[in-house]
Amino acid sequence: MRPIRVLVAKPGLDGHDRGAKVVAAALRDAGMEVIYTGLHQTPEMIATAAIQEDVDVIGLSILSGAHMTLIPRVQALVKAQGRDDILITGGGIIPKEDVDTLQRGGVGKLFGPGTPTTDLIAYIKDWAREKQEA
């Protein structure tokens, strides 16, 4: 079985990449193949990269408050390419009610500040195992 491939992406204009970089390094150290997009990406750039790189998971990091615009757009673009099997997860400063709305729309777990990286690793690995078994 090939390692889990993850695209860690920073959509929008905010420059806070400390979390994204810490997460990218932690996932890599946990044995996953990680691609990091760099800052200031449009949803189009992210969806294209995800498909070209054939990833299993997209991890979006947003600390600008634009999550209700950017996350559904990435989701729609990926889906339009027939790749709704890709897990879209992420984190940032996202109020609980917005998290609930996004998850109802089919987005995976969204993690808040202070989450141990072990939680994300476990979540992604569990998801991959379930997908494998299904």
Partner: peptide, 22 residues
């Protein structure tokens, strides 16, 4: 807000969803 910090006007396509947020 982020668009202003990056030099984009509020009506620029890259500003969508970010105007006045932060």
């Amino acid at each position: 807000d982020f668009p202003t910090l990056m030099g984009y006007d509020s009506d620029h396509p890259r500003s969508e969803g970010e105007v006045g947020k932060c």
